[in-house]
């Protein structure tokens, strides 16, 4: 067992544990902060698997931008401490049963498919090579994605503005 193997299992444990804690919190701020821990772990994992640029993006976009957006929404809206009602157990049992069947089938597939027992090599995609590859092979997709981000910006703006107008009409 090399140091990298040990690091992988350590980081994987932290990711799964912090995500499991995050999805069970009642306090939304706690959940978001635990998820930030999980995303930092994911960034470490990306670095370990040879994607340093994606590790930086994970920290900047996921842990930085997206989670801060969640925090802003949680802070902007006062949340009364309402008790979440969970579904009764009788509704859960069929879902859990079907899920367990898929889980067994999935793990058998993962471990029995030839090629999955191959150990990962230590590789490194330099940011320069990665950028050259992306802009050579996927330049059109990059443009489409940038257009999508513009559409999202316009949509968020429109929802925010239309909301004020609707509230005023309701009051009058």
């Amino acid at each position: 067992m090399t140091l990298y193997t040990l690091l992988f299992y350590l980081v994987a444990t932290v990711i799964v544990a912090s995500t499991a804690v995050a999805i069970t919190r009642r306090n939304l701020v706690h959940a978001v902060v635990y998820l930030i821990v999980s995303y930092f772990g994911t960034a470490l994992l990306f670095y370990l698997l040879g994607a340093p640029l994606l590790a930086a993006f994970e920290v900047i976009i996921y842990a930085g931008a997206i989670m801060v957006l969640f925090l802003f929404v949680v802070m902007m809206i006062r949340i009364e401490a309402h008790e979440e009602v969970f579904f009764p157990l009788s509704q859960w049992l069929p879902a859990v049963g079907f899920g367990a069947v898929y889980l067994i089938a999935g793990s058998v597939m993962v471990f029995k498919t030839p090629g999955t027992e191959v150990k990962l090599d230590l590789v490194l995609a330099l940011p320069r090579d990665y950028a050259v590859y992306v802009f050579k092979e996927h330049w059109l997709s990059i443009e489409i994605v940038s257009l999508l981000l513009l559409v999202a910006l316009v949509a968020a703006l429109h929802l925010g503005k239309g909301n004020d107008k609707g509230a005023m009409e309701e009051e009058s």
Partner: peptide
Amino acid sequence: MIVPFSHVLVLAGMLFVLG
């Protein structure tokens, strides 16, 4: 040599189930 590829898939599957 880090870990077998299947372990990465299992980690991704566990996170997906949590989601």
